[in-house]
Write a protein that binds this DNA or RNA. Structure first.
Lengths: 245, 245
DNA sequence: CGAACTCTTGACTAGTGTCAAATTTTGTGG
DNA sequence: CCACAAAATTTGACACTAGTCAAGAGTTCG
């Protein structure tokens, strides 16, 4: 299905999620030089300290943002799914303050930063849509801060499982309440401020209590109501209601 | 000193930190209807779920963003100092996903959201500056996630003390390495994912080890080098180097 | 000057981390 | 497609950081 949709159309789709585009807006996007690129898992899209000149829109697969302490400890500070832009922060910031890596095999549409800048200056609707993409990610950072700062391990894990389900559904990618979670338990720990060992214990407990089921890395939310409650999950921060109009 | 600078000029100053403004840009800002407002500590500037129609630029004092769990636990997810905008997220998002409160007595310049929207559409330089304000805040969220997720209590407290010092200095407000930290230990705990009791123990330890000195809530960084090292602090994420040009 | 916050301190607890080893799964080259 | 190596998961025993509870001292402010 998706194979048949051109990257230009995917870009139009991603942008019109948050703003009403007119024919000129669409024509400007369709006229962009866009390159499709496949990236292997664990490869870097952006490195801290770099000055990126391209921005990627994820077409297939997942990526994540990470930051490292000097001691080598890692925090995964964001997950990105198809339809997300990996590099809006470099639209106007000179140097990247973190890394972006492919979590799975990734297919991205690559756009020159200066093309995006030009569109944000000349096309108000596109500027608005890009702003909203950035603002929704900011909102997600805030929720993650609440999650890591004030929920216990069980709540944190449950919250992330709920978020991923909600985001995949919003992107039209999740079949009901089952999805493939392409993260190791170590990565989950890095995203939640916990250790891999403890992630393992919590997942087991959630399964034992009937809130989720697991088959390899496939997650099924067996009791959405209870999981949502245990995780104190409310999707307001994802701004999925945010209409284009 | 500051009293004599008009809110319009302060707004021009805040925006030209990140973009080169021409005469038209400046004229557009000076033509805005801006209201100066004083707000008492603990008062709300924005409430979660609201649709704000104003955006505030902080002239004097400090504010913070908070999120609550259903159980009533609080996370302080951002601090704001003079020169920061409290509400850029509402430039294009309909509903607020968190609260903004006055930490101290606050003097703000209030601008209509729609005026800011109009400027971001018509004045590319202003759009760029506002983007950068938003992107720098995003960067700070990421660093806070690393801080809370992967540093121990001593590192977290030290990091926040370094950040506040760096931000005050960047705003021209800190006298050397001494500043008034207008937060209770409970608020510090909520900002760092710790309890007030533990904040107290860590502050005492930092003082005993000669990294800081305290007098009431006045903090003096007694050994910047060591504190910076203990906290793994690197100011890259603040993007203070980010030039207007 | 008194009430309500803060801060400080101690004793004890609990949640999460650490370490290590066994088991299972995944990936790769032949 | 098999065989093996590497990576990831699972589990248990134990350690330690940070939380909880409680009470006294200090501070702020009407």
């Amino acid at each position: 299905m998706f194979r048949t949709v051109s990257p230009h159309d995917r870009l139009v789709g991603a942008i019109s999620r948050y703003a009403v585009l007119n024919d000129t807006d669409r024509a400007c996007i369709l006229a962009l030089a866009i390159e499709t690129k496949d990236i292997a898992p664990t490869k870097y899209l952006v490195r801290e300290g770099q000055r990126p000149e391209r921005c990627a829109l994820i077409l297939e697969g997942f990526s994540f943002r990470q930051k490292l302490t000097t001691g080598g400890q890692r925090a995964i500070v964001a997950l990105q799914v198809p339809g997300d832009f990996t590099d809006l922060q470099n639209l106007y910031l000179n140097d990247s303050d973190h890394d972006v890596l492919a979590l799975t095999s990734l297919r991205v549409a690559v756009i020159a930063i200066e093309d995006l800048q030009r569109l944000s200056v000349t096309r108000p609707a596109i500027n608005k849509a890009l702003w909203i993409c950035g603002l929704v990610e900011s909102s997600t950072f805030r929720e993650w801060l609440l999650n890591i700062g004030r929920r216990d391990a069980r709540g944190r894990v449950g919250h992330l499982l709920c978020e991923i389900s909600a985001r995949l559904e919003a992107a039209g990618l999740a079949r009901e309440l089952t999805y493939e979670l392409p993260m190791t338990q170590e990565q989950l720990g890095d995203a939640l401020g916990l250790t891999a060992v403890h992630i393992n214990r919590v997942l087991k407990a959630l399964e034992k209590d009937g809130l989720i089921q697991r088959r390899k890395r496939q997650i099924t939310i067996a009791d959405w109501r209870q999981l949502r409650h245990a995780a104190d999950f409310n999707d307001r921060y994802l701004h999925v209601q945010q209409s284009a109009a």
